[in-house]
Design a protein around this nucleic acid. Structure first.
Lengths: 210, 210
DNA sequence: TATATGAACGACCGGTCGTTCGTATACTTT
DNA sequence: AAAGTATACGAACGACCGGTCGTTCATATA
């Protein structure tokens, strides 16, 4: 397995293409993104794609994979630096809002655009997106359950219920900020989850006041 | 300006086309919907559309109008039968969930699909969708403010904040139910708003327990 | 040095897109 | 009855779609 400049070059452009694809897909959707426009944006010829992927769907699947990795690095990982329990739950929510606020992706959120597009379109991409959503939802639930175990949230809390609320309040920032409220949507989403957690937590001092 | 049979026929097919267009757009998006598929679904020839609309964008704008009227009839209007105040706020939320649960539109929600598609695409359609969203958000705020006036919600409530929460928790039912939770998403959304309102309301007995 | 391989290209395929045009027909107005 | 108008059609358009093809070039291996 010696070093091969060709493969290295290939990996590099593969990475470049996927990064561009995720960015563009956050705006135009994963299917709305055409190979022609992606080619223009990356400087690669349209036919050059097919040296890396056998068809558009394979590229889409790899784009989902890339976006999932980015989400793990930029949202999940930073939140792990907060102490376990209710603070980590809120840190997860805040990390997402920071990710949105930083405008890392031009369209705001890859998964929002992709899921809205594929929720009614059966196929491998939809299945992969559904899995990503399940994993994410499952992760929030686990953080909530951990907070319950630590006594920082009451036993009466249903982790699935709270996970839905946190995700919904966070995700809708995309539409609201772009189409209506502007940056205020970030504040609404932040405050909604914060006050919800503070109301539940036996020791609200663990969380910021506002 | 009598309604001759000729014009009547025109109005009828216009209505048929718009109904179909809104239904299809709730699945494939407002732009993802192609005139060819719309023609196949309505039995009208592709070129026949141009007797009613000068181009696709005009049809899209009329589709938004049609969807807004449907929303007013199926969501806003039913909620007006509930007594003003916090009960009407919750009735509004419940009417939306009923609309979703009844699967009136095959894709769940026209506005969700359309807004996710157009939030980054400047133009007349985006502006019209933004106005629809502003009106809807404004309406929720007014209902919340009314509840405050009636003393059924505390003065400390920020109507814009609460309106964001109610809309976000309701809207995300579309993605969650289709891609992840199934019907449970409806329950999560219902309970989230119900408990939020009950916690705020000085007289929780105005609202159902669960 | 000779051979093999991966990356990338330009040209081109059949098909679908939104749109235009000319035409036919049914109804309304004069 | 004649003229005008609204509805709808089929044929055809240029642009773009995803995808295939044969080829070139740089690099790696024998």
């Amino acid at each position: 397995m010696t070093q091969d400049g060709r493969r290295l070059r290939g990996l590099r452009s593969r990475e470049t293409i996927l990064r561009q694809a995720v960015g563009l897909a956050s705006v135009e959707g994963l299917d709305g993104l055409s190979l022609g426009r992606l080619a223009a944006a990356t400087g690669v010829s349209k036919s050059g794609f097919f040296a890396h992927w056998q068809d558009k769907e394979q590229l889409q699947l790899d784009a989902v994979e890339w976006a999932a990795r980015q989400w793990a690095e930029r949202v999940v990982e930073p939140a792990r630096r907060a102490p376990a329990g209710v603070r980590r739950v809120f840190a997860l929510h805040e990390a997402r809002l920071t990710f949105y606020g930083d405008a890392t992706l031009p369209g705001g959120c890859f998964f929002f655009a992709a899921q809205a597009e594929f929720d009614d379109r059966p196929g491998a991409v939809r299945d992969r997106l559904a899995r990503a959503m399940r994993d994410w939802q499952e992760y929030i639930r686990r953080m909530v359950a951990e907070a319950v175990t630590l006594g920082e949230l009451p036993e009466s809390v249903d982790p699935a219920q709270l996970a839905y609320e946190i995700d919904a309040l966070g995700e809708m920032v995309i539409i609201h900020s772009r189409l209506h409220d502007g940056p205020a949507a970030l504040l609404y989403a932040r405050r909604a989850v914060l006050q919800r957690l503070r109301a539940l937590c036996p020791d609200p001092a663990l969380l910021p006041e506002d």
